[in-house]
């Protein structure tokens, strides 16, 4: 898979922490854990129409997606945060959440396989 097709990109992360493989793996581990928690928070809260919590989770997740170079998820996460802040467009917003979480989980699978988590 070429770099442009790869679903995530570590350039920004390496820019921050350097290219030590042990540290990179450690950060990937932290990301997998926190992204998993925040995804669940978005889904659970969305199901309960708790849009304030959805907005909070999206707000927290946004910088991590950016750091891991998941460019294709940046526009939807911003949209979810914005809509949820404004009270949510119910179905539309929840569909966005489901779609984003699905895409994110598949990228996370890539990561787990790359870093053997």
């Amino acid at each position: 898979m070429s770099e442009s097709e790869h679903p995530y990109n570590l350039r920004k992360l390496i820019d921050y922490i350097g290219d030590d493989p042990v540290t990179i793996r450690e950060m990937v581990g932290i990301f997998l854990q926190s992204a998993n928690d925040l995804s669940s928070q978005m889904l659970d809260s969305g199901m309960k129409n708790d849009w304030e919590n959805v907005a909070k989770a999206a707000h927290k997740l946004k910088p991590s997606l950016d750091i891991f170079g998941m460019d294709e998820l940046m526009a939807p996460i911003r949209q979810i945060e914005q809509q949820a802040k404004n009270g949510g467009h119910t179905d539309e917003t929840f569909n966005l959440v489901k779609s984003l979480v699905q895409r994110l989980k598949s990228i996370m699978l890539f990561m787990r396989s790359d870093y053997q988590f």
Partner: peptide, 8 residues
């Protein structure tokens, strides 16, 4: 409180 951003 974001564990990734904080650690990074």
């Amino acid at each position: 409180d974001d564990p990734l951003y904080g650690e990074m």
